[in-house]
């Protein structure tokens, strides 16, 4: 009974990571943009939705008590907006400037989460966020299943939309730009604007995921959006298979499982006073795994179908 509830809880979180991963796949897999600030885009979505949906509180600005669905939409819009600014600034420059800038925005937003206390609740964050299905909260199993159902439904919906988009003319041109910018340019396509659109779409999806996650776990705090999260999501996408939406979902579940299992293994093996230290081994495992995959199977477990992306494959040294 307890295991079933935990299983549902685990899978729901895995589903929220799948949404983040799908967003990242639009940016990286389809477009080749390296976003090192995933956690920030997820976090901004979470905080935006919290601001919109929590009831008014004395010591905090905001709390508009709006329905959760409005919070979700607001989250996607806000993350999309921030993505637009970051993208507009860096997308036309060499590819690693986007990486550095997104890395920077993650640090800057983390600071904002911590320091803009009247808005974000500071380092302790905000608790008692309205949850979906709060009416059945007392029945843990039913509550978890309802949430899992909702999260899965969202993943499927986003998956279907993204697959449709990938097959649309827009998706085809996007891949063409990724593979051969000059050729796409000569066809009269504007690569910068296409990339920007993809970056914004991906960011909006991440923001939505952040809101879904926040309403599920019931609180937000800056510590939820550390670079660690960015790193996990990247590992998920690269392991699962960049460019492949099924791979993104599969990778999210797989890496989240590895993470949860290695976590419980560590708490079994190490004495309590050594556990914080041992937890760093989890990160080492994921980091090494990421590098090994980049070295030996850059296309991931489930490779992209149409064509192996040139940016992952092998070219000759010149």
């Amino acid at each position: 009974m307890e295991y079933l509830a935990y299983g549902a809880f685990f899978l729901t979180l895995a589903m929220t990571y799948s949404i983040i991963c799908l967003g990242l796949n639009v940016q990286w897999g389809q477009t080749g943009l390296f976003n090192v600030g995933v956690a920030a885009f997820v976090g901004i979505g979470a905080y935006t939705s919290v601001l919109l949906t929590t009831p008014e509180t004395a010591d905090r600005v905001g709390g508009f008590d709006l329905p959760i669905a409005v919070g979700w939409i607001g989250a996607a819009l806000m993350s999309g907006l921030i993505s637009f600014f970051v993208g507009a600034l860096t997308i036309r420059m060499r590819s690693d400037y986007l990486a550095i800038t997104t890395f920077g925005i993650a640090i800057a937003l983390q600071l904002c989460f911590q320091n803009l206390e009247p808005l974000t609740g500071g380092v302790f964050g905000v608790g008692f966020i309205p949850r979906a299905f709060s009416g059945i909260q007392d029945d843990a199993l039913l509550f978890n299943y309802a949430n899992l159902g909702l999260a899965t439904l969202l993943v499927v919906a986003i998956y279907v939309v993204l697959e449709h988009l990938a097959r649309s003319p827009w998706g085809r041109v996007l891949r063409a730009v990724r593979e051969d910018e000059t050729a796409a340019q000569s066809l009269g396509k504007n690569p910068t604007s296409l990339r920007l659109q993809a970056f914004v779409l991906g960011g909006a999806i991440m923001g939505l995921a952040g809101a879904v996650q926040a309403h599920f776990i019931g609180f937000v705090a800056p510590a939820n959006y550390l670079p660690m999260m960015t790193f996990q999501v990247w590992a998920m996408l690269i392991v699962g298979g960049s460019g492949n939406n099924k791979g993104a979902i599969f990778g999210a579940v797989l890496v989240w499982a590895i993470w949860a299992l290695s976590g419980s293994l560590i708490s079994e093996l190490f004495p309590p006073d050594q556990q914080a230290r041992a937890a760093s081994l989890q990160i080492v495992i994921i980091g090494v795994m990421l590098c090994l995959i980049l070295l030996w199977r850059p296309q991931g477990v489930l490779p992209e179908r149409q064509s192996i992306s040139k940016h992952l494959g092998q070219r000759n040294e010149t």
Partner: peptide, 17 residues
């Protein structure tokens, strides 16, 4: 002959480790 950005990503993974 990996793309620059793959090497950047590897450096990101290695830095965490």
């Amino acid at each position: 002959g990996a793309d620059t950005i793959i090497i950047v990503m590897a450096s990101f993974g290695a830095s965490m480790a």
